[in-house]
Write a protein that binds this DNA or RNA. Structure first.
Lengths: 215, 215
DNA sequence: ATCCCCTTCAAACGTTCGTTTGAGGCTGCC
DNA sequence: GGCAGCCTCAAACGAACGTTTGAAGGGGAT
């Protein structure tokens, strides 16, 4: 077994288990057993469990956020000189995450949904580091596209979109409820389109406090 | 120290620690140390750690969901014979949760945000059991208020609102970013109003697939 | 063939986990 | 005073945790 083989097998197994049980509840023995490698391999190849978590993040969310930024840049290029439309911005944010899950199995979808509420300190730092550029880039695009929004409103509404997305990915066990409640299980494109519609309308909601009184 | 004293101290400490670190990462020793009670008290009063988690849930989310249902019922009563307005429905869903956090300190806010993405099996069951009635009641109110929505759309959009709410509560460490980025930290009423506006607009977004093509 | 470097392996390290134990204290009732 | 019934306590239980160790394997270069 080549070394890259072992490393990749560990990363795959770790990603899957982390997404299913969380970081704290997944032991190195669980990981090495699922990957069919020796127990010591994790510490040999990654040093410590925390470094393995970091590597899982890098491998997965690096590509994810690159894709997001690329989609945003494409939307901005096509919209010259006007700012990209809000649906385009929202879709550039949520589609890569949703489709990443579809391609890689369900594992990293729940991982993605989970990391935003993971409390371990170094996980918080990881999330902040990996998503800092995405946040600033999407925020500035949104501010240009919807100048009426204040800084705080733009931030909050984008924050809400991320929450809706993360919940859709992380709480899929609750989404499965609908499969019983409704007629058929959800298909990805359906969720994506609905999320784009929802997020777009939410972002474009009336701005002032007077909006409430009007109803 | 009376028995109810010890039980209550354990529940308070457990709720706070669970919300900060998650369930798996919080040990009974952490809890009993924070509560300043003997290590064996958890097992004496609750049997096992899992039962303690259940009790934390019951104490907190029982009251929370009662409050939600009461607000919804009030909104329905005031709106007779018409269905309650969408903002009223959204506010009845999110306001009790947000204010519960404000009253009890930040602890249970993050707990609330966290439970929806907690993977442990018995936690999933707990969430499902506690929120089943809330889900069906709010869904039926929403369906009456916005008849244009299909079953799937109503479910999904309510799901998104819950996600935005949970994210706002659970990922407060990311919200704190804005305190540095923006001008001042967020106040609760500001987040609540903005969330109601956002969720209302999202729920009332155009229904069909044609909505996308129009932009 | 010999050496070296990288990788794998079984075994063990000390620590921390959830839980159990048995002795002891406190309160109220006889 | 004495006897129960709860409750608390220090101590210990076995299991599982992340990590380390030292020996063994297995090519490629010399």
């Amino acid at each position: 077994m080549t070394p890259t083989d072992t490393k990749a097998r560990i990363l795959d197994a770790a990603e899957q288990l982390f997404s299913q049980r969380g970081f704290a509840a997944t032991s190195t023995r669980d990981i090495t057993a699922a990957a069919a490698v020796n127990l010591a391999a994790v510490n040999y190849h990654f040093g410590a469990k925390a470094e393995l978590v970091r590597e899982v993040f890098r491998r997965r969310f690096g590509a994810l956020n690159d894709e997001r930024l690329a989609r945003l840049a494409r939307a901005e290029a096509e919209a010259t000189p006007a700012a990209p439309s809000v649906p385009a911005i929202v879709r550039a944010l949520v589609a890569p995450a949703l489709h990443l899950g579809a391609e890689q199995g369900q594992a990293c979808m729940r991982l993605m949904g989970r990391v935003h509420s993971e409390p371990a300190e170094f996980v918080v730092e990881l999330v902040r580091d990996h998503f800092a550029e995405v946040r600033t880039r999407f925020l500035s695009a949104l501010r240009r596209s919807v100048p009426d929004l204040s800084d705080e409103q733009a931030f909050l509404r984008l924050f809400f979109v991320v929450g809706a997305m993360a919940h859709s990915m992380g709480a899929s066990h609750h989404l499965a409820l609908l499969a019983a409640h409704g007629r058929h299980p959800f298909v990805l494109e359906e969720v994506e389109d609905e999320l784009v519609r929802f997020g777009t309308a939410g972002i474009l909601a009336e701005v002032g406090a007077a909006a409430e009184a009007k109803r």
